[in-house]
Structure formats: C-alpha cells, structure tokens
Design a protein around this nucleic acid. Structure first.
Length: 892
DNA sequence: ACCAGTTCCTAC
DNA sequence: TAAGGTAGGAACTGGT
C-alpha cells in the first residue's frame, strides 16, 4: 500500500527524465531538495507535458485563414507533436490573436538537431512563442511556486536518516538498506533513475506541489581543497570539511591519487551535500580533479570514472551515467554543474562582496580575521609544493585542511548561503539558479509566469547583434573646492518608480506601425524621448505590476526586520534582512535587463524612455532649486546636492567634546529642516524625493563622480565616492594618506594636509615605507588554452604593454595559480622605463620577502593623485614633489 | 608636452 | 557562443 507524506523543502536543483510508457511519452521532473527537518529529498513530479505555442504570423485578421484546419492538421502530423490544444487569445506585438498550444513528445523533440525539431519545423509557417523555456522552469511558472515548496507525495524509499516519525509509518519494503533493491525498482517504475543517494525519495503529481512560506533550509555544505604537484600536475593530498548546521566533520586524504579521489567521492556521496564550496574550485580544483580522473580512469568507462569523480546526486549503477560526473557547462558559464547540488565558490563570493585588493585566500583571511594568526599564518611555500610535501607531508596536510575550513568561514561571514536562498525565494527559482544563473533568468522567472497568467505570448530571446547605445543618466558638473552645509536628496528607487508611474512595459508601448488599429488614449504617458505608453487604465504592464509587488514586499520585510530587531530575534532579523536586500537587488535589475538589447521582452524605446524621464526629472528639480536661490553643487542620475541657506557666521566645524555645542546643534537642525522640507516639497506621486544625508561640508577637486563630505545626518561619518580611497587598484599608502588628507581638508586644515603629504613623499624617497603598502593590483583577463596555459593575446591588443599581464606571467612562471579574471599584485621597480618594469607580489604565497621598488615612481604617483586635490588650495603635483610653492596664488 | 587608444574600476 | 545598463575618471603605452 502506498504511504503518503507531506514534505516541506527547498529545491536545490531540478532536472528531468523522459520515458515512453504504455500511455505514451512521459516527462518526469526531478527535484533535489533539502527538507525543513534536515533530511535530503528527491521529488519526482509527474503530469507535465512539454509544449510551445503557435500563431498565424503577422497582424491578426478578422477571420482565420481559410485553410487553418489543414494547417493545423499538418501540425498534428508533424513528427514529435502529440497534441494540439484549442486556441486561446494572446497578446503579441502585432496585436491579440489566437494561439494554439502544441504538445511535443519530449523536451528534446522541441529543438533536436539538424533543424528537425518541432520548433524549427513549425517556424516556417507559424509564429512560435513560449518555445525556449527550459522544461523544469515550467513547473515553477505553471504551478506558480518558488524554491520553498510543499508536496503531498508518495514515499518510494526512505533511508535510516529520514525522520523517525516518517520511518515509523513505512513498511519494511520501503525503508533502509535491506529494501534497496526492490525500492530502486519502485523508483524506476515511478520514472526515476534508481536509488538516488538521498535520504528520502518521493513521487507526486504536479498538482500536489504547492508554494510554502520561505524558511531558512538546513543545507549541508561540503568544502574541499587539493594540494597539487607543480612539476607533475598530480594531486598530492586533499582535505574536506562537511558542515551541517553547527556541526563540522573534518577529513584528510593521502596515498595514491586514485585513493584520494575515491575517498573524496565516497565522502561526497555519503555526506550528501547540497552545496559544494572551496577557494577557486571552479577554476582550479574541479578542473584538476577532472583532468586527473581522465588520466586515471580506464578508458571511457563511466563506472571507473564515477568512482573517481561521481559527485552527481544520481545512482551509481545506471547505464545513463553521464549525470554522475560534474561538468563545466558549455558556453561561458562561470561555474560547474554538479547534478543535484550547487557549486558556490568562496573565491567568487568573497570577490563580489568584499572587493578585496588581492584575492589570495591568505589575503582574504587576513582581511576578515586580522587577529587570528592561526588562519593566515604562512608555514608552507605554495610555489614549492613538491619540496614541502617531500619534507613534511603532515604539515602540508594540515595546511590543506585549513584551506578547506576557510571557505566555510568566509561563506558564513558574508552570509552567502542565506543571501542566495533569499534571492532564490524572491525570484522564485531553484537555489542553483540563484547561485549560478544570470540576471535575465531571475527576471524571466518573475515575468514569464505573469505573462502566462495575463495572456501575453512569450517571445524568444532575440539573437540580434549590437544596437545603438541608449543615453544614460545625467551628471552635473562640479566645481573644485569646499562647500559648506549641503543637503543630499535622492529619488527613491528612481528607475523602478518611473517604470511604475509611467506604466513602462513591453506590453504597453504604443507602436502605431505594428498595431495601427490600437486605440491610443489621450492620457498615454509620453516620454521626453518620444515613445508613448498606454495608461494603466487601458492595460496594466507586466513590469509595473511586478515592481509594485516587489516594493510592497520590501516594505513588509523591512517592517518585519524592525520587529525582529526589537524582539531580539536574531534568526528572523537575518531572514528579513536578506529578503529585503534580495528584493532590492531584483528591483534594480529590471531596468538593466529591459534596457539590454537581447532580452525577450525588450525594445530600445523602453530603456531610452526610462532614462529620458530620469534626466528630465532631475534637471527640472535642479532648475527649480536654482531659481529659488538654492545652488546645486552636484547631481548624479537620481541625486541632488543642494547648498543649504545657512548664515555665514554659523560654525562649520563640530566643536570639541564638552565645549559649547549650541550653535553647532542649531545649524545641524537647520540643515536637517531644510533637507526634509525640500524632500517634501519636491516629492510627487511616483517620484518620491528623499532627504538622504546632511553634510556640514562637501569637497570635490572638480571631477564628476569624485567627492567627499562630512556627514552630520543621519550619522556622523565621512562620505567618500570615486577617489582612490574607494578603489581596489590603489595601494595602501596612497589610500591611507588620502583618507587623512580628506579628514584635514574637511576640518579646514588644508595647510596641515599639505605638510603631511610633503613628509610622506620624503619618507617614500628615503625608502622608509613598507613595500607591502605599495602593492598595486588589478584584475587580469586571459583565455585558458586546452593544455591549461593562458593566452593573453586573444583578450589584449598589446598584452606585454600592460603591467598586470606581466605580473600574471611572473606568477605563472613562479608556479603559482593564475585564473583569468583574478586580481594580481605588483611593485613598480622602475617607472622611468616604458613600459615600466614591475615585480609580481608573491610574498603572501611564498613567504619570500620582497623589498625592491622605485621610490621616485611612487613619490610621483602619490603627488599626482594628491596634487589633484591640493590644487584647490594652491599646491600642484609639481609643488608637492619639489616641496615648496613657486608662487602663492591664495593664502590660507 | 601632448595626444589617441586601451584598460580597469567606480557611481549611479 | 551568452549576455542587466550608461557615464565618467584615471593610469598607462606608444606615438608625435
């Protein structure tokens, strides 16, 4: 008798299987999930059919073509087509017209090669839509669910790790190791591949899969690291750490390469992780395991290969063994695909969230945990791994294990898993799409399901080439010098707001050429660009609907976040904070996707209109403010920096602790009042202006996107934008001295600031500064050749003219890892030559001290960067280098 | 000394 | 091929 169970889980990844049964072809969706209670689940979903929609090409006609029946009959007779549904009206760019849903045998029948797929064949006579949707996505769209689902399902098998209460309800034929053989057969009967390496295997119909409220799923993480020989390409040893909740288990592997790889594979299959991590595993460890697996496996025997690298969450004993092996996807997908799991590389996550100056694991560990020597102490020279391994294998193994632990620490520190799960929940995609997918996939997930509900046909992603660039945001000129008392105002979610209030959407764009008979109401929204959009009363756009919903969602999470903070509920606080952040990210992604020239619901007029409205709004406000006597000192896209009308006798410096603050506090209050007043005055429905910050002083050297300010509201802090201080390709010494300089300038001590610089330049020339503080770094591209070497010529016109390419080449020559896109550091050893000579900075990895640098180069570079700023006070870069001023134009 | 071209990184 | 956007500053090379 069938036992049913209610499962609440988060979908990690989905896939599908095809079979032909007695009732014809069937496509079964496989969902790999982690249940709320902690066990892993494989869910087989039945009842879905692959399909596409077809319509008569061109503008809709009053009558269908006379031969429509014959045409449809030809469709029915097309090889691969199993059924044609009754027509439904759907909106297209050319008007609303009937669409027939065409079911096909299997997903592959849609697009199989040589133009013989159903889609290709039908395209000659029909307009095809909904014809490039990945089959698994259909479950999420058609059922309107996200990653957190509830399924009322039949239990096919449960391991002993499944929840006790569930096991108690199961007959012996359905549980534990003794029931493996017959259970595997049962799973196959239900369309699965056999006994998947999970805790619970269940099956249900798509109607039994419903949305459940998002919850933090107790994912299992697997982090690993390899140490490899530099001379031989072989693997010397490996370490892995499995994390489940707060528990961690550590494992080390040594011996023959075969033993190491088999050991890792057994551990993956036994510990059953959802997420695979490590440091730069996408570019280093996973490719290395693959190449060693190929060298060690017996020919092309899948069985033998899978013993070494069968990390996929599918049964081992199966003819269809291709899914057992991880694969680097075709195309330029950044990460690997491991069936049933997702790869979350700590390197990439750290890079994106921390923007470290350098990207070695050592550097990131030191950045995050400066006090913890045990995490970044260097005891092994990575560039001499063979010698180190020969000398002290235990030490190398210890080092390897530490490098397997660190990625888990990094992911946890930056809440990477929570962030990805929240993104998945808001975009309503499997976890793997949140971690490895693209922005347009997230937007697709939100837009397509709404389009389906609203009867809008879903066009294919266009393959058009480059089109003309659209005009972007407006940036106001900024004058060099100090400006006291400035209020910063900005539009709240400017682009989303514009899209909502003007009903901007692919489905609302008025196009008299494409739809000449469409009624154009008087109150259409006409953008300054010239394009027009229907008012919401005629047709509400998909995008405005989605954005409005997201805005509401964000408010809900923000309120829940406040409540959680008040109640001291840490986990709820984390959850709602991640959710509101994910909503923000997704809201801001809409504009970019719709302004791109390839997205399926795109038209160049959409992006151009949005930015035109934005420019018009901000310029109008600037004009009004200036007319009213409030000078605008700066503005960028959605912000305005306005001089507050504050009496010249008011203090501009915050008084010392304890001294009389009355005048200061009063002035701050005036500034705040002014800011709030402006925000209220200039806010209109759909274009809300917010008082963002109050600055007691603002400074720029006169370049757009570069400024600093002393914030007095809402918090006291220094605000810096654009300057070297913010840039990851600056060097510490410059960053530090510039930060100090800004502090002094904002305090009105520009003379003092200049004196500091002069002294620093002296110290640099006397070689009295730490070489580590002079390391410059930039990211470096490259193409990996089949043999693993890097080709720089395919990405750079003159690679050897670029210092970072030379630094990358030095790294490679030293036997250290280089992966395209990674940041490389260097010291300039002779700046007089052209190109300058440099030395790659390898000290963090080799432990070998590097002291050679060109003092004059650094003196000059510091003088140039700081001179731009001190120029406002009469000190040019040359003056700084000379140590005195020729002529005094100003006095301070 | 100055210029054009290439490249990266940042602000929105 | 697969793919969110534009505006803008600055460093450097390799020329005149």
């Amino acid at each position: 008798m069938a036992v049913r169970a209610n499962v609440e889980c988060c979908v990690v990844q989905g896939s599908y299987r095809s079979r032909s049964g007695e009732d014809g072809p069937e496509t079964i969706v496989e969902l790999w999930c982690r249940a709320r209670e902690g066990h892993s689940v494989l869910l087989l979903v039945h009842g879905m059919r692959p399909y596409l929609d077809i319509a008569v090409p061109g503008r809709p006609t009053a009558e269908l073509p006379e031969d429509i029946e014959q045409r449809l009959e030809r469709v029915r007779q097309t090889n691969g087509v199993t059924r044609v549904h009754e027509p439904q009206e759907k909106w297209t760019e050319l008007g609303t017209k009937p669409h027939w849903r065409v079911e096909v045998k299997q997903p592959y029948a849609m697009t199989n090669r040589q133009g013989s797929g159903v889609r290709d064949k039908l395209e000659d006579d029909w307009e095809t839509t909904s014809a490039d949707i990945m089959f698994v996505n259909r479950l999420f769209y058609d059922n309107d669910v996200g990653p957190h689902i509830r399924a009322d399902a039949e239990v096919l098998w449960a391991s002993d790790s499944a929840p006790e209460e569930l096991l108690a309800t199961l007959p012996e034929t359905h549980r534990g190791d003794e029931a493996r053989t017959e259970s595997a057969e049962r799973v196959r009967e239900s369309g699965g591949e056999g006994l998947y390496p999970v805790d619970l295997i269940v099956s249900c119909n798509m109607t039994q899969v419903t949305q459940c409220e998002a919850f933090p799923a107790p994912f299992v993480l697997f982090s690993f690291d390899l140490e490899t020989s530099i001379a031989e390409e072989t693997i010397l040893c490996a370490a892995a750490v499995v994390q489940s909740g707060d528990e961690r288990t550590e494992h080390t592997f040594r011996g023959s390469e075969r033993e190491i790889l088999e050991g890792l594979t057994r551990l993956v299959r036994e510990s059953d992780p959802d997420i695979i991590t490590g440091y730069n595993i996408d570019n280093f460890d996973l490719p290395r395991i693959e190449s060693r697996m190929k060298a060690l496996a017996r020919g092309t025997d899948i069985q033998s290969a899978s013993e070494l690298f069968g990390w996929g969450r599918v049964p081992v004993f199966d003819a269809d063994g291709g899914r057992l092996l991880p694969k680097k996807d075709t195309g330029r997908r950044r990460t690997w695909r491991i069936q049933g799991r997702c790869v979350l590389d700590a390197w990439w996550q750290a890079r994106m969230t921390l923007r470290p100056q350098r990207e070695t694991l050592r550097f990131v560990a030191e950045l995050l945990w400066p006090e913890r020597d045990d995490l970044h102490k260097l005891d092994v020279d990575a560039s001499r791994m063979d010698e180190e391994w020969a000398k002290d294998p235990d030490l190398v193994l210890e080092y390897c294990l530490r490098d397997a632990i660190l990625p888990l620490e990094i992911l946890s520190h930056i809440h990477a898993v929570e962030r990805k799960e929240a993104l998945a929940a808001v975009a309503r995609v499997p976890l793997e799409v949140a971690t490895a997918g693209t922005t347009s996939q997230w937007i697709d997930s939100m837009v397509i399901r709404l389009a389906d509900r609203e009867g809008v046909a879903v066009p294919r992603t266009s393959r058009g080439g480059k089109t003309e660039q659209i005009e972007g945001g407006y940036v106001h000129e900024v004058e060099a010098g100090l400006q006291p008392w400035v209020a910063v105002l900005d539009f709240k979610s400017m682009y989303p707001s514009i899209m909502i209030s003007n009903n901007v959407c692919y489905t609302t764009r008025i196009d008299e050429r494409k739809r000449p008979d469409e009624e154009v109401p008087e109150d259409a929204h006409e953008s300054p660009f010239g394009a027009s959009f229907l008012p919401a009363s005629s047709r509400r756009g998909l995008v405005p609907q989605l954005l409005e919903h997201l805005m509401e969602q964000r408010d809900i999470h923000k309120r829940a976040l406040d409540d959680a903070q008040e109640n001291g509920d840490g986990s709820a606080e984390m959850f709602h904070d991640q959710m509101q952040f994910a909503v923000k990210i997704l809201m801001n992604s809409f504009y970019g996707v719709f302004a791109s020239n390839f997205y399926r619901f795109t038209h160049p007029q959409l992006g151009a209109s949005i930015t035109a409205w934005a420019r018009s709004n901000i310029k109008q406000i600037i004009g009004q403010l200036e007319d009213e006597g409030h000078p605008v000192v700066y503005s960028d896209t959605d912000s305005v920096f306005v001089t507050a009308p504050i009496d010249e006798s008011a203090p501009t410096l915050e008084p010392e602790e304890g001294s009389d603050r009355e005048a200061w506090d009063k002035t701050c209050a005036e500034l705040i009042g002014f800011g709030q007043e402006l925000a209220e005055k200039y806010s209109v429905e759909g274009a809300e202006l917010e008082f963002e910050a109050g600055l007691s002083v603002f400074f720029s050297h006169g370049a757009k996107k570069r400024y600093v300010g002393r914030k007095v509201w809402p918090r006291s802090e220094m605000l810096v934008r654009g300057y070297e201080v913010r840039r990851s390709d600056s060097f510490n010494l410059l960053t530090d001295v510039m930060t100090g300089m800004f502090e002094l300038i904002l305090d009105g001590e520009s003379n003092e600031a200049v004196q500091h610089i002069l002294q620093l330049i002296k110290r640099v020339r006397a070689r009295e500064v730490e070489p580590a503080d002079l390391v410059i770094s930039r990211s470096c591209k490259g193409r990996v050749n089949p043999d693993g070497s890097i080709d720089f010529t395919r990405v750079y016109t003159n690679p050897d003219g670029l210092p970072f390419v030379r630094a990358a080449k030095q790294r490679i020559a030293a036997g250290l890892n280089f992966t395209p896109g990674m940041k490389v550091g260097w010291l300039v050893t002779n700046g007089k030559k052209s190109p300058m000579t440099i030395e790659a900075w390898l000290q963090e990895e080799t432990g070998v001290e590097q002291t050679d640098y060109d003092p004059e180069f650094y003196a000059k570079r510091i003088a140039t960067a700081l001179g731009r700023i001190s120029e406002a006070f009469g000190w040019s870069a040359d003056d700084l280098l000379k140590g005195n001023r020729q002529a005094t134009l100003f006095s301070f």
